[in-house]
Design a protein around this nucleic acid. Structure first.
Lengths: 171, 171
DNA sequence: ATTGATTACCTGTCTGAACAAGTAATTGAA
DNA sequence: TTCAATTACTTGTTCAGACAGGTAATCAAT
């Protein structure tokens, strides 16, 4: 699902959407928190996407780049582990980053099966931009929450994460 | 991104993943709450997906079905508005639900452009199952949170949603 | 040293989602 | 009445992500 009536366009449409932020989509009344997670996640992802768009990166790709910038050349497997991703997804994400010129591949000297992925020099221009985008994203997400409220929010999310982790790998 | 090292398989792997739930992926340290939202959303979606799998529905499709069961035949536009979705996505979601035999299309007698989407009688078998899945999803998400904590969680999520809504439609 | 896992990656297929372009039918004016 | 929006819906393309196979290279025993 999800699209949220285009970002801009006609100019009047967004207001109409924004007017019903807490609408109970009827059926989902049985799981208000699940539904809220859906909505927040969607909005958050959309925001990340629109902040990232000018850079040419798609949501998720920036995490790969951040890791490469931080830790230098990595094998695909390492990226998969760290980002808790999937081999197939990572293969294609890296192919796209490679096509876009942000990443380069080099055979791993110690293992002929593996390849080392490294950020290109050109990609360094992106780095500050991406970091700034993450700061913006966090700030827009938090709005005017006080430090104490931010702490509560983080704790709440971590609690949800703990529950989900517990109940995800077959309970 | 995201895959979370397969649901089951070797049997030992999940534990390794579960052991580092709050790992700071280095680069994302600049946006701890944004990152927590990512992780929670991913886990939540995965859980929803795995609960839904046996029914043959994919995440998102169940929301469409729930609405159709609740409100009866709807035009595509109405579904789009209510689920805050995208016309293109809805077109294809409905095509898939149609192929799966859960919905049927009928021309709108009052508007030749529109089609009415209605749940098939066969789909009714799914209804209780889906409602049960949503209860499970909510319960697994909430873990052992007290009522008060659940209220806090919901408020927190709604606060985040409000912030994101405000800052999403061009501020 | 040969054989049988395991590991590292890749490809294909299907899903939701975003975006861009369409095609009809309908509506609103001039 | 005609003609220019608007509306309802489709189609095409590109992402991430999940799942189901592959294919080499490496490792661990026998």
């Amino acid at each position: 699902m999800a699209a949220r009536s285009r970002t801009s366009r006609t100019g009047t449409a967004p207001a109409a959407t924004a007017a019903t932020p807490l609408r109970q989509p009827t059926a989902a009344a049985g799981g208000p928190i699940s539904h809220a997670i859906f909505r927040v996640a969607r909005l958050h992802r959309m925001l990340a996407g629109s902040l990232l768009r000018p850079t040419g990166l798609y949501p998720g790709q920036e995490l790969v780049m951040m890791h490469l910038w931080d830790r230098g050349a990595q094998r695909q497997t390492d990226l998969i582990k760290v980002l808790d991703s999937d081999a197939a997804t990572m293969t294609r994400t890296i192919q796209r980053l490679e096509r876009a010129g942000f990443v380069r591949r080099r055979p791993d000297p110690s293992d002929a099966r593996a390849a080392l992925i490294e950020p290109t020099p050109a990609s360094q221009h992106l780095r500050a931009e991406i970091e700034n985008i993450w700061r913006q994203l966090e700030s827009l997400t938090l709005g005017s929450l006080t430090d104490a409220q931010q702490q509560t929010t983080l704790s709440t999310l971590e609690e949800l994460e703990r529950n989900l982790l517990e109940n995800t790998s077959e309970p």
